[in-house]
Nucleic acid binder design. Structure first.
Length: 580
RNA sequence: GGCCUCGUAGCUCAGGGGAUAGAGCAACCGCCUCCUAAGCGGUAGGUCUCAGGUUCGAAUCCUGACGGGGCCGCCA
């Protein structure tokens, strides 16, 4: 249930009645009518802008509409007061029963409370991580992984049919470099001193790959030319890298539904087919590009290439799909890959990229727009940098200097739950500070701790009640007489819980999982506040002498725990029941 | 130079066209005989970078400027 959409439906019905009455003209567009929690709680529980939005089309002063609407709404038992305020807001105060209905709904629906159907019938593909299979994942990949996974969970909760997908870049020259690097480790495994030339990957993680190559091939690849071993070693090494990457993802709690291979697009006609489709749309031509505006590279010379007319779909310049030597550019398999996603029937594609790929967005959107003929939208979420801190000092990552911080380093040091939560407490397009000390801090400065602590307090209450032998299953609590709750702080907490379904929809529509993290912080704050008021006002404590009153208080606490757990579930964070 | 992105309290950041713009930290003042003080309450702190525009209404949408970051044919 979503109390906000329920009340909005009530408002729309009331407007319909006013039309029937003749006060309002027929045919008004009510799409812009909203029912929202007011920013200032003094304004009531919910506010609607209906009168302001409709004043002009109806040709009536806003207050006149608001007054008539107020009279109508008051006949609903849920609405206690309806006051016209400001420029024409209609502020509603609801009967406490309306909020207790929310608490009951939480207890009845459990983790499903807040689940939405706005995505029903929508097939969504979330492509994320897609790190090159050339080495372990680093912190930047971790942020993209966490974001993509939480976004996928959020969309699923909002009713979408979600596929989590990883695009394996195993078709380009970087996997040749990987193969040459692994080959040196293979030689090393045979006792040779490795020659890690400039441009090869020096990391130790390839040493076991070299040993495994020795085990599989013996000395049969030694002292042979690249033409003999390159393809074999490339496949072997990139497969080994993917095993490692999957382990890294698993350590973070990320599980992909589909791994798509770039290499698998070559030689199967898939690229040719995608390009042919574009050609059929008159979007492929042979031509010469202008040099980039204002910044001509030193070695620039005009060359004829096969180009994609991406400017016909919103890009700034057309993009090459073939190099001047006739081989495919990196863009070509990407076209084929996105064509594949379109033909698999997705209604919405989401690509999660590092911010350094920002220049790539327009051409991909052009591809999807062209190949789906406008049916499918592509939303690209760019993930900004993670800045690492330790002991108040920033430290720079460098592959060359060996101060490369891997995803595994981070997870090993602070744990998957903390890593995930912290990385989701920021919008994807804002840079993130990650301080190894602060994220483990056990204080309210640390949102991870703060939210977990609220849940632990709730669990503590539940344990104490269970020890006292009182029935505290959700069904029993849902049957509690909730009118024993009357304090504004209690109603405030219930009101916050009522916002959960609404928040889910807002976050899902914007592809913004960070909203969940901020919301949970607010819930935790309201809960801690209520808890602490129990210090001064014994009536506000959760455990009461009177069993009926106690049951009502515990129902509210339990409902809070259910919502916190559901939210953490979307973020992929385990709710803790006890702080240690 | 072009494109993308960001600019909100001293600091770190929220804020899907709504009213008097919020939270945490830092500062100051309070609260443990009491379900976990690992916490809570309060005070103070703002020209939402600037200038135009759209509208009943703009931090939010549009245009431009300024400032930070990113990207910029034959790498992926």
């Amino acid at each position: 249930m979503n109390l906000f959409t329920d009340i909005r439906a009530l408002v729309i019905d009331a407007l319909g009645a006013l039309v029937a009455e003749g006060l309002l003209p027929a045919g008004l567009d009510t799409a812009a009518v909203t029912v929202e929690p007011p920013r200032d709680a003094a304004h009531g529980d919910m506010a609607t802008n209906a009168a302001m939005v409709l004043a002009k089309p109806a040709g009536l002063p806003p207050r006149e509409i608001a007054d008539a609407l107020a009279a109508r709404l008051l006949s609903d038992p849920r609405v206690e007061t309806a006051e016209v305020a400001g420029p024409g807001f209609l502020n509603l105060r609801l009967n406490p029963d309306a909020w207790w209905g929310v608490v009951r709904a939480v207890l009845q629906q459990g983790a499903d409370f807040g689940r939405s159907t706005i995505g029903a019938g929508q097939k969504v593909n979330v492509e994320f991580v897609s790190a090159n299979p050339t080495g372990p994942m680093h912190v930047g990949h971790a942020r993209g992984a966490v974001f993509g996974d939480a976004l996928a969970a959020l969309l699923d909760f909002a009713g979408h049919d979600v596929t989590r997908e990883y695009y394996v870049n195993d078709g380009g020259s970087q996997v040749d470099v990987l193969a040459r690097s692994a080959y040196e480790r293979y030689r090393e495994a045979h006792g040779a001193s490795p020659e890690i030339a400039e441009g090869l990957y020096p990391g130790d993680y390839l040493i076991p790959v070299g040993a495994a190559l020795k085990e599989k091939y013996g000395d049969s690849l030694l002292d042979k030319g690249e033409q003999v071993w390159l393809a074999e070693v490339r496949d072997f090494a990139s497969a080994a890298m993917m095993v490692m990457i999957r382990e890294d993802l698993a350590a973070l709690g990320v599980k992909m539904d589909v791994y798509s291979s770039e290499k698998a697009l070559y030689g199967t006609g898939k690229i040719e087919e995608a390009i042919k489709t574009l050609r059929g749309l008159d979007l492929i031509y042979e031509g010469v590009l202008e040099p980039p505006k204002g910044k001509t590279p030193d070695d620039w010379e005009p060359r004829e290439q096969t180009l994609f007319r991406s400017t016909a779909h919103g890009d700034d310049v057309d993009r090459p799909v073939k190099k001047s030597d006739g081989t495919w550019t990196y863009f070509a398999p990407d076209i084929a890959y996105h064509y594949d996603k379109v033909t698999r029937g997705f209604d919405l594609l989401i690509d999660v990229f590092g911010a350094d790929h920002g220049g790539y967005v327009k051409r991909l959107k052009a591809v999807v727009s062209a190949l789906s003929e406008g049916r499918v939208t592509l939303d690209v979420k760019l993930i900004q940098l993670v800045k690492l801190w330790k002991n108040g000092e920033p430290f720079k990552m460098s592959k060359r200097a060996g101060t490369f911080v891997t995803l595994r380093d981070v997870v090993d040091e602070v744990g998957a739950d903390v890593t995930r939560f912290v990385m989701l407490t920021r919008k994807n397009d804002a840079a993130l500070d990650f301080d190894f000390a602060k994220v483990l801090d056990q204080s309210k400065d640390n949102p991870v701790f703060y939210v977990q602590y609220a849940n632990a307090r709730i669990s503590s209450v539940m344990r104490k009640v269970a020890e006292a032998g009182v029935a505290v299953d959700d069904a029993a609590l849902a049957a509690a007489e909730l009118s024993h709750l009357a304090h504004v702080a209690e109603i405030g907490l219930a009101r916050k819980l009522a916002e959960w379904p609404r928040l889910v929809e807002i976050a899902a529509k914007g592809n913004e999982p960070h909203r969940v993290a901020f919301y949970l912080y607010e819930v935790a704050s309201d809960f801690h506040s209520l808890w602490n008021r129990g210090n001064d006002l014994p009536d506000l404590r959760f455990l009461q002498d009177d069993p009926a009153t106690s049951a009502a208080k515990i129902a509210l606490a339990r409902a809070t725990g259910v919502v916190i757990s559901a939210g953490l579930g979307i973020l992929g964070v385990t709710p803790v029941e006890e702080m240690r």
